[in-house]
């Protein structure tokens, strides 16, 4: 275990040093992050300015969902996507061999290989929106509510990561998959609104098939103290199960791998 922690630290250090080479990117990244913030918030502010409540959510409450959307998007872009792109590249060019011969778990190595530290700004802006939302609501969550929201966030990251791992596993069979990442991003965009906005089949799709509701709406509900304990526990159990299945599929996929050169 401590060996893996040391490895993680080394990988993080390498990514950070790589990112520090491109300091102009940091400035551009910061500006872009601000920009994405404006364009996420603008529709919310414009629309809620006309209505006190939409689909059962006031502005302050909806901002919590937006905050979690930003937070998860930041984690996705900082840690999950770069690794995903890197491993798909490895598979296509055959250099995955070099990863597989290293004496550590291959899944661990590929998923920690690349971070984009600047994207952390996105995640931090999510925390900023959450604080603003609570200032607006005038109440603060209890420690237990924050704990529940954090537990759900961990579960959400596990789901995002597992989805990414499934995409990578698919790349062993179908090589050109880079654009599936963009499709994934485009679908994740639907998580920016409270899930009650969606109706009928869409609601079922975004709760059970692609559990976007779990990722942004449930943490917001937990912070507001409105999430039933059983729903929260079921969500966490579902996320854990999903992660186990994704790991099993990855192991099968990697057994199937025959290297690009042979």
């Amino acid at each position: 275990m401590s060996r893996y922690l040391r490895l993680l630290a080394a990988q993080l250090r390498a990514s950070t040093q790589l990112a520090l080479q491109y300091r102009v990117d940091f400035v551009i990244g910061g500006v872009m992050s601000l920009f994405r913030l404006v364009w996420t918030l603008l529709p919310v502010l414009v629309v809620w300015a006309r209505r006190p409540e939409i689909a059962g959510w006031t502005l302050g409450e909806a901002l919590l969902v937006v905050a979690w959307f930003r937070l998860l998007n930041g984690i996705l872009e900082a840690a999950v996507h770069p690794a995903l792109v890197a491993v798909i590249d490895h598979i296509r060019t055959g250099t995955l061999d070099f990863v597989l011969v290293k004496p550590a778990d291959a899944q661990f190595l590929v998923s920690t290989a690349r971070f984009e530290p600047w994207r952390v700004i996105d995640a931090l802006s999510g925390v900023g929106i959450a604080v603003y939302a609570f200032l607006k609501l005038g109440v603060w969550p209890s420690a237990a509510q924050v704990g529940a929201a954090l537990a759900l966030t961990v579960a959400s990251v596990a789901i995002l990561y597992s989805l990414a791992l499934l995409v990578v596993s698919a790349a062993f069979w179908v090589v050109r998959l880079d654009n599936l990442i963009y499709l994934f991003n485009a679908i994740f965009d639907a998580a920016r609104w409270p899930s009650t906005v969606w109706r009928g089949a869409w609601r079922i799709l975004f709760t059970f098939v692609i559990p976007l509701a779990l990722m942004t709406t449930y943490p917001a509900l937990a912070l507001l103290g409105r999430l039933a304990l059983t729903t929260g526990l079921a969500a966490i159990a579902g996320a854990a199960l999903f992660a186990v299945i994704a790991r099993a599929i990855w192991l099968r996929a990697i057994a199937h791998y025959t290297s690009a050169s042979s």
Partner: peptide
Amino acid sequence: LSTTMPFIMLAL
């Protein structure tokens, strides 16, 4: 298929 934004805004 990645052009989902109009659908997402329409839902809101």
